[in-house]
Design a protein around this nucleic acid. Structure first.
Ligand SMILES: [Mn+2]
Ligand SMILES: [Mn+2]
Ligand SMILES: [Mn+2]
Ligand SMILES: [Mn+2]
Lengths: 220, 220
DNA sequence: CAATTTTGTTAGATTAATCTAACTTTATAC
DNA sequence: GTATAAAGTTAGATTAATCTAACAAAATTG
């Protein structure tokens, strides 16, 4: 059974993997906030446990078992976030740090019960997909708001970044998942957009914000 | 901040303390399922952190800070058990192992929210008192069923042992907290009792069972 | 393509939590 | 009250997870 530390490395590998499934030692060290030698020794441990493939000086790759283990921890993280928001009244900006701890609890029934009580959700409070019990993730096909055009109507569906600061910014602008947004114009100089939604008329969103919003296009 | 391991030692010390607040090294080793040298080195660590008083060859004692830290972990354990039973539909025999892990989560808001949603309970699903936010425990004065007399009517209030096996035994006999029990007789030979409650008429409870049941006397 | 920079590895140390073996102190029992 | 037993300590080793310093390989770049 994976230790908490190992589970955190597996999650990081899962999230950092490029299309070929590869992750560099330096990226992983950076993500985990540890030194490269620490990562070097940890990937050897992960390999011994059958979770990664690794050769000196080559990028690391999760094995199928590694992928599944990682996906199940991510499942527990996202179910926890959903439970905290929908059943315990937390805000979407408060739940990540708690879920980061709860995800490591070894008690399948605990998470199955959450899943049931939540009605088997497929996305978490930030719009990220919740892997199923087999570790499979349903692919979503959202587009980034910054690639949208003036005149389009879209619905906010997910975020590419869920930091507390960004979520608090979205709260301050009254933006939440499911909000329907009309794009009035896009400034070619700085890629900012003027949009309207709910009571917010002609709100300007900077490129920095737009590039973190994933939407479904529903009109024009 | 206490590590998970340290928190578990503090809980054990809290629970093992005799009226003078003392715990022997061997008792603690036995409770924690580790060797005496392990305990010896751990109590030195706990002392360095200000949680215990300790002198070579003397029993260990929690300091007031140690007591408070222990009580707050116990609070989190018992709130979790209550939440699992009352809000998530678990049976009282299923929750201890999960709570043993959840109790170590560092997120005061998480447990405050549980407390609120539960309506600020003062006892857990096994009748044990839940310490308040200051670590204070409200004293209860129950009597052990095996000290009761024929003819008395009592209400099951708490247990001195909450092992899964014992809880499953109680489930099989339809016994739960709050059940009103009438004592018909007490066998002087083996201390067993013949009792009635709910639909269960003239049920025999062995000494081994009676000594684990704490009751409030309500009649005769 | 050689020089330099970046990335990755090895070696060796540290800290927490554990163990066994050997020894010492305290308690118990004739 | 000495002998034995029980309880407790010390010493030294182990494993997981981390670090820094030194070195090596790979990538970049003029
Ligand atoms: Mn999260
Ligand atoms: Mn985590
Ligand atoms: Mn318990
Ligand atoms: Mn515990």
């Amino acid at each position: 059974m994976a230790s908490q530390t190992e589970e955190n490395y597996l999650k990081a590998l899962f999230n950092l993997a490029n299309p070929a499934g590869e992750v560099n030692i330096s990226e992983l060290a950076n993500q985990m906030n540890v030194s490269m030698p620490t990562v070097n020794s940890m990937v050897k441990t992960l390999q011994k446990n059958g979770w990664v493939i690794y050769q000196k000086y080559k990028p690391v790759q999760l094995t199928p078992e590694g992928q599944k283990t990682a996906a199940l921890v991510i499942r527990q993280h996202r179910l926890t976030e959903m439970f905290l928001v929908n059943k315990m009244g937390f805000g979407w900006e408060e739940v990540h740090a708690i879920a980061e701890q709860v995800e490591h609890i070894h008690a399948p029934k605990f998470f199955e019960r959450m899943d049931e009580l939540l009605g088997f959700p497929t996305i978490d409070p930030h719009g990220s997909p919740i892997p199923d019990k087999m570790g499979r993730i349903k692919e979503t096909h959202y587009v980034c708001l910054d690639t949208c055009e003036a005149g389009q109507t879209v619905v906010l569906a997910a975020l590419t970044n869920s930091s507390t600061e960004f979520l608090e910014f979205l709260n301050s602008r009254n933006l939440s998942l499911g909000t329907q947004i009309t794009i009035h114009s896009k400034e070619t100089y700085d890629q900012s957009m003027v949009v309207s939604y709910l009571q917010n008329e002609r709100e300007t969103l900077s490129e920095k914000v737009c590039e973190k919003l994933l939407v479904r296009i529903i009109g024009e």
